[in-house]
Design a protein around this nucleic acid. Structure first.
Lengths: 236, 236
DNA sequence: GCAAAAGTGTTAAAGCTACACCCATGT
DNA sequence: ACATGGGTGTAGCTTTAACACTTTTGC
């Protein structure tokens, strides 16, 4: 392979913001570093990009290492590149945003990495610019979950509407009206009623639904407001 | 400065998608390369990131070189990192999205770079993965302009509502109802009537408005739908 | 039977679309 | 005066928010 005549090649890291939902609050998967630099401090899970590895693959590798999960929802949300963001050496960080069903993760792998699930409200200060990354990821989540049925990614395959509502309440840190929420969600036509009930409940058992993933793709742009909705093509 | 014990440092490029609006159609600022590789072919304006330069600064430098403009609307929209995306050497590309008022740019600088404004509908095939970048940028524009008063960035400081409407029609490639558009835009409270008229018109002169930039910031999140609007805090 | 949570219905207000009329301007 | 494009108003429909009652379940 030839090379460009350009002197500066830069170290590229990948950092992952991993959101989970424990049924009550939003959680972040963070690691307490047992390596230098900043040993003993909290940070996001990350790693360096390999020479022969696509960005997405790198993120998937890091996520798999930590959680034992594949095929999870991952999205690139930005690249952080301030010259002095890493005190050791200039490092670009491509930041990924992952949503996982917290029950699925591999507890052993998480323990081995010295990682913990931490409620968003109790997040400690993180190293470098990782706090900025988390802030950006939370904004991204809030922004996108208000417009698109993103929240499903944080729930099990089958879930109840009250569960989904609790999740939305956690994301936006506000109470929502049960009846209106239910009507809005159902009116999207994205939920399929499995006919089953949540047997864990000690009171009236809520119905279990699952996401209609085909429609989810098609309806991705149908919540808009500024441009008349009926006129918008289904796939932009 | 110490260094990480990690072998792979990667070349990092910055590529810019520059949108302009000529009053009728959306335009892209593209360069016809007079250098290798892919000499003679069309591409986005780009360059390599310098060792001592922040990402944003790099984008601003490249944009200034080409257009002579500073303080323009620039946003990072993603990083492209497929291993084989550049045939010469592995290169990460951080993609920026710029909106400029087409009348302001420096025509001499553009000519010197062998660049041209090209209507989006007549875009030639671009090198590498630049077509994907343009596609992503257009989606970004459509997505964001539907929810936020982004279009203003493409217009002069003072503009008329019919101009703004033509712009939106160009972005979404559809006709909009004049009366409803006007009412919707005005109801955002983001436009300040300058009291002046567009003297270029040969028929009834439209009123000139300007953007209330302070409110623009505050109202950025006020077009949502999924979560009751009145309940949303002004700044998330 | 009672407490707790789930499911459904209604109503009034707000917002949206579609449409028609009048006004300003240059030829 | 007429053609062109700008500005405003309204009726009917749809969507939304706010609110109350009934049902299921375990104790």
């Amino acid at each position: 392979m030839t090379r460009y005549e350009h002197p500066t090649r830069i170290l590229v890291a990948i950092d992952c913001i991993i959101f989970g939902f424990d049924g009550e609050e939003l959680d972040l998967l963070l690691i307490k570093r047992n390596f230098e630099p900043e040993k003993g401090k909290w940070s996001l899970m990350g790693g360096f990009l390999n020479e022969t590895e696509d960005l997405e693959k790198g993120a998937e590798r890091i996520l798999y290492d930590l959680t034992g999960l594949k095929n999870i929802f991952v999205e690139q949300i930005g690249t952080f590149g301030k010259v002095s963001r890493d005190p050791v050496e200039r490092t670009l960080s491509v930041v990924f945003f992952a949503l996982i069903n917290i029950a699925d993760h591999d507890q052993e792998a998480v323990k081995a990495h010295n990682a913990n699930w931490i409620t968003l409200g109790k997040k400690p200060k993180l190293i470098f610019d990782h706090d900025d990354m988390v802030r950006m990821a939370l904004e991204h989540l809030r922004y996108n979950a208000a417009l698109h049925p993103l929240g499903f990614e944080l729930l099990p395959e089958r879930f109840t509407i009250p569960q989904l509502q609790k999740l939305y309440e956690a994301i936006y840190d506000m109470k929502l009206d049960r009846r209106n929420f239910s009507r809005k969600i159902l009116s999207t036509g994205l939920l399929i009623d499995t006919g089953e009930k949540d047997e864990n409940s000690t009171t009236k058992k809520a119905g279990l639904f699952r996401l209609d993933r085909e429609r989810y793709q098609k309806k991705f742009y149908s919540f808009w407001n500024f441009i008349p909705n009926p006129a918008l093509p289904e796939a932009l």
